[in-house]
Design a protein around this nucleic acid. Sequence first.
DNA 1: ATACATACCTACTAATAAGTAGGTTGCGCT
DNA 2: AGCGCAACCTACTTATTAGTAGGTATGTAT
Lengths: 183, 183
Amino acid sequence: MDTRTEIIRLGDSLIREKGYNAFSFADISKHLNIKNASVHYHFPTKTTLGLAIVQEHRNRLERLKTKTESKDPVEKLNAFLNIYAAAKSENKICIVGSLATDFYTVEPEMQHELKKLADSILKWVIEILKEGKNKHVFRFRTSERTKALMIITNMLAAVQLTRLTNKQDFKEIKETILHDLTQ
Amino acid sequence: MDTRTEIIRLGDSLIREKGYNAFSFADISKHLNIKNASVHYHFPTKTTLGLAIVQEHRNRLERLKTKTESKDPVEKLNAFLNIYAAAKSENKICIVGSLATDFYTVEPEMQHELKKLADSILKWVIEILKEGKNKHVFRFRTSERTKALMIITNMLAAVQLTRLTNKQDFKEIKETILHDLTQ
DNA sequence: ATACATACCTACTAATAAGTAGGTTGCGCT
DNA sequence: AGCGCAACCTACTTATTAGTAGGTATGTAT
């Protein structure tokens, strides 16, 4: 893996572990055994790095959308839920949740990019729910948008809150989401 | 209001607006028109201030529990949901969510106090759900603990996520929680 | 009156932050 | 062989951070 990619990977990991304002270029340079200035060579500012990290998440999401296109709604939803399960397995939280907390401390460009990511997630879940409803595999009462928001908020906060309770709670929440939908 | 209380209020406000690692003693001293050292007089370290803020939340929660003791379950749940609605009206997030994000950057004492707060919230919501089920005003399938976690995660992340979508989404989520429970 | 505590102050320190100027190394291309 | 560029480096700046030492004003109890 090239250095630029490693910086993005590490920066992402730090944001989701400790938060945007708790990680520094020094954290990255130490961990990669390069100097502070070398990190700045790849990313002139913290904002450019932050933007690359958020964009990488959006790219990964689009790739996952495409990859699961032909799968059934349950598999699609599982693919979505597993993003959070993977985060939880490392005790990391969701990038959206982490940066939503720090939202008013980041530059407008970052805020904008983050909104685009949140939008992309929301649209995907809405699509999955619509398809599941049409195919009679999902059953729910509210609008697709609201139901999607309920599911996303469950997962987004589950990775956060279960840092304070226990990991088993996360599993229960995840399973309940699917169980409730499929009745 | 005395200075100590004002520092707690302001610190809490800053944590819930920008996150623990984005606020400084300088933010507080400037806003209260006192000097940095005066803030340190009341709170020797950032941790002592953080602890006081979390403890204040737990005190407020206990007072709210007591105050609504004799009310019916729907009113109790509304009292709980309105904590988040009040936060949302100022575009602030939940203290638990904010500090869960920064969890691995705060001292063990803070982590412990935060766990106690999360526990207190969870226990209250579980109680409300149990009472509601017994009195046949709430209807839900999963265990009380899991249902409580679902509701708390909905609200905790709703205040965060709707910074990126829109305020109306928050209202929908909140209303759906009650609507789903009362069928 | 004096002693003492509370609540502030001035003036500072050491550590860490993001960011920069300009030099060095090694590799591929012509 | 020599050019140019990518990817590093040394060495620095400026700002901000939490935290401290020690002094001052004001009220209260003896």
